[in-house]
Write a protein that binds this DNA or RNA. Sequence first.
DNA 1: AGCCTCTATAAAATCGGTTGACGATAGGGT
DNA 2: ACCCTATCGTCAACCGATTTTATAGAGGCT
Lengths: 353, 353
Amino acid sequence: MGRTGIVTIRDVARECGYSASTVSIVLNGAPLSRYIPADTKERIETAAKRMGYRPNPLARSLRSQRSNIIGVMVIDITDPFCTPILRGMENALYQASYLSLIADAHNEPHRFERYLEMLLDRRVEGLVVIANWLVTDIKLLADLTECRVPTVIAGRSFENHSVSTVSVDNEAGASLALEHLYRLGHRDIAFLRGPKALSSSGQRWKGIRSFAQSAGLRLDSKKILELPESLDPNSSFEAGAQLTGELLRQGKPFTALVAYDDMTALGALRALKKKGLRVPEDCSVVGFDDVAQAGLSVPSLTTVRQPMEAMGSLSAGIVLEAIKAMDEKQDAPVVRRKVPAELVVRESTRALK
Amino acid sequence: MGRTGIVTIRDVARECGYSASTVSIVLNGAPLSRYIPADTKERIETAAKRMGYRPNPLARSLRSQRSNIIGVMVIDITDPFCTPILRGMENALYQASYLSLIADAHNEPHRFERYLEMLLDRRVEGLVVIANWLVTDIKLLADLTECRVPTVIAGRSFENHSVSTVSVDNEAGASLALEHLYRLGHRDIAFLRGPKALSSSGQRWKGIRSFAQSAGLRLDSKKILELPESLDPNSSFEAGAQLTGELLRQGKPFTALVAYDDMTALGALRALKKKGLRVPEDCSVVGFDDVAQAGLSVPSLTTVRQPMEAMGSLSAGIVLEAIKAMDEKQDAPVVRRKVPAELVVRESTRALK
DNA sequence: AGCCTCTATAAAATCGGTTGACGATAGGGT
DNA sequence: ACCCTATCGTCAACCGATTTTATAGAGGCT
């Protein structure tokens, strides 16, 4: 044992009088260990334990070409949407004794690329990209498919590319939100749509339109505003407040408002309150996502829940499956998982009197 | 180049007709490269670039005994207090081209220990523990000092141990909060203290008492409640709401409330609203931390800000310094950094009429 | 001629663990 | 007596880099 206090396999071997190979074979239960008698095994095992031997994962990875690490690219770790996904992933990976190497791109494509390279350098066996917001470009895909690293994009769906994705059913979710308001008797409903650049915006809007059509509800284009494009996910709070202010100034009455996401909805709450309107008495508000904040506001927010933890563990599961498939030389299928959204009714909506 | 598409240093060597040693020496600008003529260097460098050679960090780490990785133990990644710290750390580490390996302990001591071992196994060169809540025990310390891994605890201070810490000046911060209310004319003030097990509770309370004393303000023990101990940082919202309810039921009037942290304060807002009290008209509320939520609530929360990003980069800086010191065989000093808190006045407080 | 020093490059050792190919012994079958 | 197989291990190669040591030719000096 060197003076660093770190015990190598050779130290153990020397200590108990066997070779490093034998120690390795025994401790890993390799096929050859079949022929090693029980008492030898025991001697080796107790020596290893006594000496506190812990195999060096670096050396092991180098030899076995397996890092036991999944790279996780988070577009913006301060986004409350991300952390529950991370939590879910972590749960799934923990069980498979994989570690996750998390890179936070700060919403900057430049960092995204640099970190992507770092992750690939570190020989991550798989990659999960939590794409809440940033419009990830094609270069990503090129790099990844070229390097044969199983990849899942969580939180977004790309219809056109051959990457696995895990995303919520935005269309159905948005329908749920509108249906909820409709059932409560609301007919004059305002909308704050998401920015065009986000695919989820389009999907949610499609859900809105399809429900409206099926229910015979007329959507008044004067009451439909669109969030500006922005790189910062937290900006939608400000934008929500501002657009709601515009709606109110415009004078067209509405009894309910559907926001693109929770942040937007919280912004709307603030703007409504500022104009002296009470929620839900004077106006109902629905969000989307169910981030942690949604339950804590006053009034608490009725919203459409994305099962973020589940999405996280699903993503991890898909990547792990793909890795296993590659081990067996099959190629992994592209999985597009759409998880159902769930309406969470809280205080910000109520029946129209 | 193997069929994996990964280029090794030997591939580069073969390609340009030199040995792996020479390539390594040139690409790293090692001392011996002094003797290598410029055109050879150029040939090697262009070949490396053309072939897209990227040295394998695993192999490099194994040889050099340096992982270029800092381990980060997060007690609970879904706690909004943690992510800005992570962001700050990441910024500092990015510049030093260190990567952070984040482990989320889920508030479970069991996971904490297992991850700690994993991190040490991976030969992290330093460790930052983001200790928002969990009462970390002594075993941690033993393991760490034994393994000679520079460690910083961010978010807590331990007076009695010889670990570096970065924490906010809780005492001064709490004083600021109370002073703010006092200046606004409030004299009947209720308090929701933090749980005893947290050292920050005691510190904040000390700040409260010291300001009260210096201003001649009497604290009414009937209006001082204490949050229950709990492992879950998000529980303080519920607890805040519940304790505020108790205060109100008790009937002792108060015009302002100082909460242990922002979550507690948000809980208080909810309880006050439920009883029909308006904030800040009928009661002012102050929080502590300035988590992202604080600015988004209605009314937005006056609070004492912990400069979390700065704390994160400070922590990273201290660890990096310690690593550098160890490189030069000096031993790194124990640093106890206390950063100033800052009062952020928003809508939840106003002058007593 | 003999011995240094300076260049320019390569061979070999090393990091710590894994693994396929062997060696050696003992017993069983023919 | 001979081959086969089951046991119990060890050797050496290997993963992909870095680094120490070595080699070899060219000049320069005595």
